[in-house]
C-alpha cells in the first residue's frame, strides 16, 4: 500500500526561541531548523511498514518555503521513495495545510497518511484530524502502536487516562505520539542516495487550493518570567519554607 507522510520544517527542538522586540513574532534568523520531531516518528513508522513488506511506496509531503527541501531530503534519506514540496513563503494555518494535503491525497490515493500529532512551533495539534475530516477517513490520533490486519488498522492511542485501542477502516489518517517508535539516523550512503530521489515542487495555486485565513496574529510576547527562587540547605529548611513562607503544605 502507498503511505503518505507529512513533514514540517520547524525550529529545532533544542532551540529556546526569543520573541522579537517589535512583538511581530519569534526571531528565526540564524536559528537551527529541523524536521518536526513528531514527523520524524511518522517517517520512521512508514519506513518500518515498508521494511515489513506492508508499505510499497512512501511519499513525503511538506508545505513550506524552498528550504523545506532539506527536511524532505532527510525524509528521502530515511527511506521515503519520493517527495513533494508545496512551496509557499506564507506561514499557513493547519486548515490550509490540511486542504493542501487533501488535494495530494485525492491525487495520490494513499491507503494510509501519517502526520505528527503536533508541530512544535505552532503547538496546534490539528492538521491530521482536519485532513481526516476533509477526506472523511477514520483517524487514529496520538498513536503509540500500529498493527495492520487485512484492510483494518489497529491503533493504540495515548489518552489522558492511559491507552485506548481503536480499529480503523482503511484508508485512514494516523498522527504519531512520542512512543510510537524511536527514529533512526540517516546514514551517509543513504543521504547521498537521497539526492537522486525525485523531489517535485508545486504551489498551492497549482493544486487549486485557497489558503486564505480567518486567523490573524496580532502580537507575540514573551511569557511572564518567574522570579528567581532560593536554594535551601536541608530538608528541614525546605519543610519550614513550604509550611511558613509559601504556606502550601
Amino acid at each position: 500500500m502507498k503511505v503518505l507522510v507529512a513533514v514540517k520544517r520547524v525550529v529545532d527542538y533544542n532551540v529556546k526561541v526569543r520573541v522579537k522586540a517589535d512583538g511581530s513574532g519569534v526571531d528565526l534568523a540564524n536559528v537551527k531548523m529541523s524536521m518536526n520531531p513528531f514527523c520524524e516518528i511518522a517517517v520512521e513508522e512508514a519506513v518500518r511498514l515498508k521494511e515489513r513488506g506492508i508499505a510499497t511506496e512512501i511519499v513525503a509531503v511538506s508545505v513550506g518555503p524552498a528550504q523545506a527541501q532539506e527536511q524532505l531530503r532527510t525524509a528521502l534519506a530515511l527511506g521515503a521513495d519520493r517527495a513533494l514540496l508545496i512551496e509557499t513563503d506564507e506561514e499557513l494555518g493547519s486548515l490550509a495545510v490540511a486542504k493542501l494535503l487533501k488535494a495530494v491525497v485525492d491525487k495520490e490515493q494513499p491507503q494510509l497518511v501519517i502526520t505528527g500529532k503536533q508541530a512544535i512551533d505552532s503547538d496546534n495539534n490539528q492538521t491530521g484530524q482536519m485532513l481526516a475530516a476533509l477526506t472523511g477517513y477514520a483517524q487514529g490520533t496520538f498513536a503509540s502502536k500500529l498493527e495492520l490486519s487485512g484492510d483494518k488498522l489497529k491503533v493504540v492511542r495515548e489518552i489522558d487516562g492511559g491507552l485506548q485501542t481503536l480499529e480503523l477502516a482503511l484508508p485512514a489518517i494516523v498522527t504519531t505520539d512520542l512512543r510510537l517508535n524511536e527514529p533512526r539516523y540517516a546514514s551517509l550512503p543513504n543521504i547521498m542516495k537521497a539526492k537522486k530521489k525525485p523531489l517535485e515542487t508545486v504551489t498551492p495555486a497549482d493544486l487549486g487550493v485557497s489558503v486564505a485565513s480567518t486567523l490573524k496574529t496580532l502580537k507575540v510576547e514573551a511569557p511572564a518570567e518567574r522570579q528567581a527562587g532560593i536554594k535551601v540547605g536541608s530538608v528541614a529548611e525546605l519543610v519550614e519554607k513550604l509550611k511558613n513562607e509559601a504556606k502550601v503544605i
Partner: peptide
C-alpha cells in the same frame, strides 16, 4: 484541550471550514 477535545475538535472545525484556536 484534553486528549478527547484535541481528537474531535479539529475535525469539527474542518467540517465547518474554520480554523481552530488551540489551547
Amino acid at each position: 484541550a484534553s486528549t478527547n477535545g484535541k481528537n474531535y475538535l479539529p475535525r469539527v472545525a474542518a467540517l465547518l471550514d474554520v480554523e481552530q484556536i488551540s489551547e
